[in-house]
């Protein structure tokens, strides 16, 4: 029961992007098209899940004085692995994502979950928590990218959807501020369904 909520809470009431407002920077940068957004989402899921798992396994042995450094080394290692694998197997996407793969290291969600959850919980729970938070992030990325690609280029995953009916891409959608506006709209819709999140 509790394990399930580890996985699902970040998708709804405790979403890292739209409730905790973490990881906004990369959400703006990689959501012009769906494909890079999906790859970025998967990369973040991998990193949050395994950094949580590794840190949870190490949690009883880490000297508290170098705790943050150990976290950074673990996270950085995972991110470099992801970057190397993308460059070898998904070259085009890795070029589109450019620096933002490397910047997963600084994504607040990753270190936030390690520090707030993994250091105090068992490995399997931490792993699920990492997957859940990664999913919550990926979900928002995909929603934002869906609207930006559909209305910005008239395509989805590069496949022509509405451009064939004479739709001319609205390039305003392709600019970063539009991602912020869409994230704002998602937050608005989300809060109108979750009254407990509304600030008085």
């Amino acid at each position: 029961m509790k394990l399930n909520s580890n996985l699902t809470a970040p998708l709804g009431g405790n979403n890292p992007v739209i409730v905790q407002i973490l990881g906004i920077c990369s959400a703006l940068a990689v959501t012009v098209k769906l494909e890079p957004a999906v790859v970025m989402g998967l990369s973040v899921i991998f990193v949050t899940a395994f950094s949580n798992l590794v840190m949870s396994l190490l949690r009883n042995g880490i000297p508290s004085r170098i705790r943050i450094i150990v976290q950074l080394v673990v996270i950085a290692t995972l991110v470099i692995l992801v970057d190397q694998v993308l460059r070898a197997f998904a070259y085009d996407v890795s070029k589109q994502l450019s620096v933002y793969v490397g910047l997963i290291i600084t994504n607040c969600i990753v270190m936030g979950r390690v520090e707030a959850y993994a250091l105090g919980h068992k490995p399997w729970e931490s792993f699920l928590d990492g997957v859940g938070n990664g999913l919550g992030y990926a979900m928002i990325l995909v929603i934002v990218a869906f609207f930006r690609e559909l209305f910005g280029s008239g395509t989805l995953f590069g496949i022509d959807i509405i451009a064939r009916f004479g739709y001319v891409g609205n390039s305003l959608m392709l600019f970063p501020p539009m991602a912020l506006i869409i994230v704002g709209c998602i937050i608005w819709v989300h809060r109108s369904f979750n009254k407990d999140l509304q600030e008085k």
Binding site: P63, R65, I66, V70, V73, T77, I80, L81, Q84, V85
Partner: peptide, 26 residues
Amino acid sequence: KNSNAYIIMYTVVMVVIVATLLTFAA
């Protein structure tokens, strides 16, 4: 776990493992 000897040992082991892993991947 907060003695200097333990911390140094810990970091050395960690760095060697990480370096091996990344070199292998690269």
